[in-house]
Design a protein around this nucleic acid. Structure first.
Lengths: 184, 184
DNA sequence: GTTCCCATGTAACCCGTTACATGATTTT
DNA sequence: AAAATCATGTAACGGGTTACATGGGAAC
């Protein structure tokens, strides 16, 4: 009596976002970018594949809409079965484990095989990116109401706290690692 | 005059680890687990595929070793070309962008559609996992010398700082979000 | 004496990314 | 008027995971 049709987190993310209002795939792509992309990116092609699967499962239905001067589109909306599947998933215990992959750290791991110049540039670049990402996330957090959007704000806040940790780590290890230009 | 054979970060990770000493795929899998898995997991099958590719490229060579009472194995080691390719990659500017995916945050994003019980359990579970992961990383950091293993230690330290941020985020939002059991 | 773990891998699958298409509209 | 962007998607590829295989030794 195992899980009959096990569908991945990405499917539920798409299904969940469709709970806000009916949308086309194109709309969804932009919504993902503005909402969950900080912790769960989904690219264009993948969105369309998930829409096909969800419709196949009966969790959403799409209706074709003709447009003048623009390509026709399909607007998808949740079905009752979809709403139930989402609620069941949300309240089931456990979740896909978090994953973190850092190309930067892979390089740093072999830091003693790099040239001092390579190390310096890599660190400078990393710090810069982290800083601009921090600003990005800070703006998002500030734009969200701590009352109305409490949960959404919390997700962005974790992102912010993580980048902040990242930045203070950079300062911490910059003192310890041989990154400075030798003077002599 | 573009990049002729573009190989991914995972390949270089395997190639780099082989720089320490010649090893079999099986050995590599365990080494990955003990060294870079915190920021770059590579599973068994993938390791073997990368070994095949690296040998094809001439960056490593493997020799078959017969064993009594154990399956035969292939021991791989870096070639001169491999060492050069690694050094070039390490010192080339830029790196694959870091990626973070959180199944937990996807659920939390839809937190207002969860039951209070579901939320409580999810948070409790998340905190517990983070805490045990923090201990795991703290042990690794302590086991590494700040002098001899400076770079490796730095990579583990970032992991540690991130989990710490995670844990303090849990405390921060636990006060704000409706997670408590109502009493009445 | 089954059952689990060690030691070595291979095969199949699917998630996720990159590249391709297309016609209208806005920008330079 | 060429180039970039908008608004829709589809097709192909490859990275990464899960499942399968196998035979000896260790544990219970």
């Amino acid at each position: 009596v195992a899980n009959p049709t096990k569908i991945p987190t990405t499917s539920f993310a798409v299904l969940g976002l469709l709970g806000r209002e009916p949308m086309s795939g194109y709309d969804l792509v932009r919504l993902v970018e503005d909402s969950i992309a900080h912790f769960w990116t989904i690219n264009k092609s993948h969105v369309y594949k998930e829409l096909a699967r969800l419709e196949e499962l009966g969790y959403i239905t799409g209706t074709s809409v003709h447009q003048e001067r623009l390509p026709d589109k399909r607007i998808y909306k949740q079905t009752a079965a979809g709403r139930k599947a989402l609620a069941d998933w949300l309240n089931s215990p456990g979740h896909e484990p978090d994953r973190f992959r850092s190309g930067f750290l892979v390089k740093l791991f072999f830091g003693d095989e790099m040239t001092p110049k390579g190390r310096r540039e890599m660190f400078a670049d990393y710090r810069e990116r982290a800083e601009s990402y921090r600003q990005h996330l800070a703006a998002i957090v500030e734009s969200l109401s701590a009352d109305r959007d409490e949960f959404i704000r919390a997700t962005a806040l974790l992102g912010l706290r993580e980048v902040e940790a990242c930045l203070s780590w950079v300062d911490e290890v910059s003192k310890e690692l041989p990154l400075e230009r030798k003077m002599q």
